[in-house]
Simulated assay, not measured.
Amino acid sequence: MGQLAVKQQTQEQQATTLSIIDTVDLEAVQSTLSKINQFQMVIQNTLKREHDFGVIPGTGKPTLLKPGAEKIHMLFGVTSEYEVTEKIQDYDKGFFAFTIRCMIYKDGNKITEGVGHCNTKERKYIKQDAYTLANTCLKMAKKRAQIDATLTLASLSEIFTQDIEDIKEFTQTENIETMTLKMQHKLN
């Protein structure tokens, strides 16, 4: 009896899948894919390198930056709202963490959302005073959520990534620290 029910459920799922495929307007899909491709080309040709997006040596894709995400929002005529979904503010231990949800709306209708997280135990923040970083982490989580939502909104995940700028900042910090140590050794 159990095997028969599973077999029947599987057949129903396949029938539902087929009926969804049968209802797809292939011309409309082709038109939409063409528009997405054209929009991606406009974005690539319009956004400014090192301002709207950054290219990190050794990575496959450039990373979308906050100014670029804001321009894309303007192009689409969308608005964004933010919600703190997780907040840890441990003043005794100096640990702060925020998870933010960015919801993007067009004419009052929710189009998509993104999520971003940041905390004071991230590698780039470890050597800094956690108490002065609470607001920085909040803003970074918000930015990450905005970029996550924007990549989905504009179908840009195949040409941009996110959070690579964090690696760049970390690498720059490490390079500066390494150069400083080398300079100190040469002076001694």
Rank of each mutant, 00 (worst) to 15 (best):
I111K: 07
E86Y: 10
R123S: 07
I164T: 11
N109S: 03
I100D: 03
F53K: 13
T112L: 03
D148S: 09
R144N: 04
I147L: 05
L33D: 06
A149N: 07
G2I: 10
T152W: 15
E113P: 11
I56W: 07
A15S: 10
K7A: 12
E81N: 00
S155M: 05
E165I: 01
E122K: 02
I72H: 13
F39H: 03
E86I: 07
D52E: 07
K127H: 06
T150C: 11
E169Y: 07
R144F: 08
T23R: 13
L181C: 14
L33F: 13
D90W: 11
T152A: 10
P62V: 14
D129I: 15
F95N: 09
I176F: 08
M179T: 15
F76E: 03
D166H: 00
T99I: 01
G116Q: 12
N109K: 08
E158I: 01
M183E: 05
A69N: 04
Q162C: 08
L64D: 04
K7G: 00
P57E: 05
E165Q: 15
I21H: 14
Q30Y: 09
M183R: 14
Q8R: 10
Q3A: 13
E50C: 00
I21S: 15
T180N: 05
G77P: 00
F39Y: 00
E50L: 12
D107N: 00
R49V: 09
M183Y: 14
G68T: 00
M140S: 12
A28V: 14
K106R: 00
G94S: 06
E122I: 11
H185S: 11
L75T: 00
E169C: 02
S80W: 10
T99R: 10
C102Y: 03
V42S: 12
Q40E: 13
F170Y: 15
H73I: 06
Y91G: 05
Q9M: 14
A154L: 00
N135H: 04
F160R: 15
G94I: 14
Q3C: 02
Y131C: 09
G58V: 04
Q3V: 04
E27D: 12
T161R: 11
V6L: 07
N37W: 00
N109P: 01
D90R: 01
A154V: 02
K121R: 11
P62R: 06
T85E: 08
V78L: 11
R123A: 10
F53Q: 10
V115I: 01
A15P: 10
L26Q: 14
I88T: 00
F53T: 01
C102P: 04
T132R: 03
H73W: 14
Q9L: 02
T32G: 02
K186R: 14
K124P: 02
I159C: 05
N119C: 03
M103I: 08
Y105I: 07
S155I: 12
V6C: 02
K61W: 04
K121L: 12
F160A: 03
K142F: 07
